[in-house]
């Protein structure tokens, strides 16, 4: 009886875990017993696990990850430093909004990743080129989300602060910042996704180290298990970061989780 109760209570979890286990098992069994594996074109979970173990123990994977995250952090930090003030000014000053909105919207809507080859060629295959790409891709979510956050600030609250003789500092720290916070976190979540695309594309295009380079090199040399290891690690990082942001969003502003500005 107990097992049944457990099932009805955690139905989602049980079914989800079951479906993942089923898929992995089916993949492994099919390629072991039904079709013989052609190691140049396909691989199976046991081989991936082996490659995973080997790579985790080796130094190259960690080195690649460090290289990629350094470029990511540089680009991302600059996106934060530039994007948040820009969004604040756009939200607070109507004329600035009018002037910048069409231009920035066009930039945000367009696939700026198309500039990747140019950026890599101009800034080189090192940290700078990749960081520039990450910055370019991840700055706009910050701008537009902070912008929307400021816009959504309750005018009544602003008037209250003003009437009670609050200074500009009070206004910013007590009203505008708190009401912008959830938008900012949502923006960060989007920016992480876009920044990761930037890193990957930059490293696919031209690099000598980094996790994206490791994946594309493994592909070029038909080392499929290694390639899957790279893909899985990168996906796990992406999922963890995005999920962390979503959790943060839920704690900061549970009433508007999952909503996005544009």
């Amino acid at each position: 009886m107990n097992a049944k109760d457990y099932y009805t209570e955690h139905r989602r979890l049980v079914l989800g875990v079951f479906s993942v286990i089923f898929l992995v098992a089916a993949w492994e069994l099919l390629l072991t017993y039904v079709f013989p594996v052609n190691p140049f074109f396909f691989t199976k979970p046991s081989l991936i696990a082996e490659a995973f173990k080997e790579q985790v123990q080796g130094a190259k994977l960690w080195h690649d990850l460090a290289i990629s995250s350094r470029a990511f952090l540089w680009g991302f930090s600059f996106a934060v430093i530039v994007g948040i003030p820009l969004g604040l000014v756009m939200g607070w000053r109507r004329r600035v909004e009018y002037a910048l909105d069409p231009f920035l919207t066009a930039m945000y809507a367009s696939p700026l990743v198309a500039l990747a080859p140019l950026l890599i060629i101009v800034f080189g295959v090192g940290v700078l080129g990749k960081a520039a790409l990450v910055f370019l891709l991840s700055v706009f979510p910050f701008v537009f989300n902070v912008f929307a956050g400021v816009k959504s600030t309750d005018a009544l609250l602003i008037n209250v602060i003003r009437s009670f003789g609050g200074t500009d500092k009070d206004l910013y720290f007590k009203v505008i910042l708190p009401s912008t916070m959830p938008y900012l976190i949502a923006g960060a979540r989007l920016a992480i996704g876009r920044g990761l695309v930037g890193i990957i594309v930059g490293e696919f295009y031209a690099a000598s180290e980094g996790i994206g380079f490791a994946i594309s090199q493994a592909g070029d040399t038909y080392r499929l298990p290694d390639m899957f290891v790279g893909i899985i690690i990168l996906s796990v990082i992406a999922v963890v970061l995005t999920e962390a942001m979503r959790r943060l969003e839920l704690t900061v502003a549970p009433w508007r989780a999952g909503e996005e500005v544009r």
Binding site: R11, R12, L13, V14, L15, G16, V17, F18, S19, V20, F41, G193, L196, V197, I200, V201, F204, G212, I215, S216, A218, G219, D220, Y222, L224, M227, G230, I231, L234, S235, V236, A238, V239, T242, E243
Partner: peptide, 28 residues
């Protein structure tokens, strides 16, 4: 709800991760 529970792990994780990483494999 059953289908949702079965597919949710894949949908969530694929949606959160950059699909571009699969490109070398697709080219292969």
């Amino acid at each position: 709800q059953t289908l949702e529970a079965l597919l949710d792990p894949y949908v969530t994780s694929f949606n959160a991760s950059p699909r571009i990483v699969w490109l070398p494999l697709m080219i292969l």
